[in-house]
Nucleic acid binder design. Sequence first.
RNA 1: GCGAGGUUAGCUCAGUGGUAGAGCACUUGCUUCACACGCAAGGGGUCGCAGGUUCGAAACCUGCACCUCGCACCA
Length: 908
Amino acid sequence: MIEIPKAYEPQSVEAKWYQFWLDQGCFTADPGRVSERRPAYSIVIPPPNVTGVLTLGHVLNNTIQDILARKARMDGKEVLWLPGTDHAGIATQNVVEKTLKKAGEIRHRDDLGRDDLVERIWQWKEKYGGIILQQLRALGASCDWSRTRFTMDPEYSRCVQNVFVDLHRKGLIYRGKRMVNWCPASLTALSDEEVIMKEQKGSMYHFRVEVAEKPGTFLTIATTRPETIPADTAVAVNPKDPRYQHLIGCHVYRALPVETPKEQRRIPIIADEHVDFEFGTGVLKVTPAHDKADYEIGLRHGLPVIDLLTPDGRLTAEAGPELSGLDRFVGRKKAAEILEAAGALAAVEPYSNNVGFSERADVPIEPRLSEQWFLKYPSVQEAKACVAEGNLRFFPDRWAKVYDHWLNGIQDWCISRQLWWGHRIPVWYRKGGTEIHVDLEPPADVANWEQDPDVLDTWFSSWLWPFATMGWTGDRSVDAQNPALRAFYPTTDLVTGPDIIFFWVARMIMAGYEYCGDMPFRNVYFTGIIRDKQGRKMSKSLGNSPDPLDLIAKYGADALRFGVMRAAPLGQDVLFDEQSVELGRNFCNKLWNACRFRQMQGGAMEGEIHPDLLTSDDRWILIRLDQAVREVTQAFADYKFSDATATLYRFFWSEYCDWYVEASKAALVRPEGVVRTPQQEALAANKLAVMDLVLGSLLRLFHPFLPFISEELWHGMGFHQDLPEDRGGKTLLSASWPKPFTTEERDYFGLDDTADRVAQAKYDLITLGRGLRRDCKIDPAKRVKFVLRPSGELPAAEAEVIRLLLNAETLEVTPGFAPPKGTPMAANPLGELFLPLEGLVDVAAERARLGKELEKVRAEIAKVEAKLSNPAFTEKVPAKVLEEHRQRLLDWQAKERQVLSSLENLSS
RNA sequence: GCGAGGUUAGCUCAGUGGUAGAGCACUUGCUUCACACGCAAGGGGUCGCAGGUUCGAAACCUGCACCUCGCACCA
């Protein structure tokens, strides 16, 4: 720091240090260094989609991971933060297909064919797939980039196929024709977790059907989906429903398609417990092909299945000529019109119901019967037990309940996807035969076989992330010798959003037990969701989602990190406001200037602290530093990062800058031409030594949150100079985390309650004195005279601090001072502070203020007296609390006397 | 319907039985030789509502209201 600019300029500083850390290999994890004295700390990144760009959600998530990783390094651990991306099957294939269509290269993916399209996606991935990881570097993420993984790396892919083959061999993976969630936009099956229920405003259509055996008798049926009537193969009633019991076994004529001869539209009236006779008319149309519950009914009663929807959600010829070819929603309206024209529509009423939507494509899904691969989850009991027994901990722990609840009700996982981009299912079918081949390698005579065209769900690869990224092979003897797995598995912490607790977290835990025999991580920190100021989710369409890189360019990465962390309490959503980043920037600037101030004082760095030269201010700031170290360290242990930032903010700004630095000027600032005595020199040097201790500790405490500016100042101030290479000499990143003072150190420096109280009383008196100045409307620039009548001994150095911070010309310390009548006065345990009148004082204003003060004091006295005069209170309360209250009464009474005498002084 | 979380200053939130707090915003005044991305002094809250337990409740218990989010779901 040769030339120190007045304001901190993050741009060049951040780029410089990130490159330095990379060049020095600071982020590289070496399993060989792990030992009992140097424990491992590891964390795997939740792999962002390879299509993704950095969002504020990523900022929150990865800042927390970086904070944890940096803190662990300072704790002397061998740290692995493993980065990477996942291939995001549907999203990536969509993006590339869309791009190619836009460029006019293809109209449909079939124009290219499977191999060529996959090739194009790879090209696209090579070109754009690293963007988000590059962006993380701007944030300061200390990932071990040499271990960057991608879920479709050859080794990783092999893990995925390996696991498929193994689970198949164990009988947990099977193929079957089932009702699945079908996405008509992406043209693939989805898992239950990828379907989100949304309330939809639609209509309930009531239509009539005639009972075949009893002409003239009609049943009214309520439905939200009249377009599926042509696929009805029964109507069902509850067997206990007296209204319809007599009709069970009869038939009705299905209402659509009207063109079909009546007799061909006969469908049975069946009895099924599933039907709720409270709901609607108590008569249910049964459409086994297009509803999960109806499919079950169909199975129970052996009903035929009529499929009338194409994969992309249009009606087939089964729906009749008028509906055929229509989109399902267009068909719905048309079906209602046809019913109305036929006189079969009894009523249409507005109706709200929940409809499953494809999470990714945001269109209603269709329950659809199709042949898919399913997984019966492995190691469920272990996964449940480790969380229930508290071996694997969730922060906040309420998620444990959500997790347990989900595990208790899980259905088999549909893992096949009708896509081209992803891990192809390692299954071959013999052409013209029934034989199947499930293996990592294709059959020898592969020409006679056909490989399953589907790929696996992306989550079926990311659930292996914690160990597949570390070179797991599935061969026990090989894996037992794998240094990375041995050192870093199980990982220590996982940081992720609660929205993927089922998708990812739960499944990783099961995979961890199944394939490594242990949990994949010990702690899971669930972040909140980033919202805008009004509490709305960030979204592209709302345009309320600022680009983090813009924010970094404007305010600096440290500012963004600090702002976000300050606003993100554990377990709560984060309402993001650019103002909080601005606050982060201001904070960095304050830190910069605090160090600049120290720098301008010159003198030796980190001199020895002589206890006999410590003033009450010095002792006070050391006590506060000790407190701050304890609080921040505890906050880390509890994963309460916003508590840590709050403590740092308070200590650095409100305690160190506002009081300590200001007070230190009494000893440090030398008026021109004045030569300091050797004693004054020694005091000043001692103060600088205290400052250096505080600043050196502060930079360490700040480092996990503000890695760039702290590193810049660490070097600029020269804190690195006398430290060992690997403990802060080379970089702050590996400096040791500050420890609270030991009892010996506290004794040595004289850090006791008295020191704390004296300084506190001094600052209190200064605030009171400033109040006098204001009440008396004295220009802040005017250097007035104060007189202090001390209640005890007051060293000259202490008095000088008071004088300076009151901006007083002089402060007379006069034990027997007798003020003239009308002199404004403020008092506290340290003494009475007078502002002698010079004909300028606004007596009325001061009297008004004191009157208000007196009122307040007396109210407090009344409150305490009321308590103390209550026998129930004095008899039952613990002695300590009683004593506290008695002391409180004395304090308030003293205050009352002080205010009264101030008032008396005023009256002339 | 079941479950979880929330309701404290204008805003965002701390506060696990004993004197209601912080930051921001607001008001007033200040180019005080680290910082106007700053300094100083202020104003501002019947702690969602109603009961209960207790000498004492923002905190513990019960009920209610409202807001969020999961899970399930009836056509």
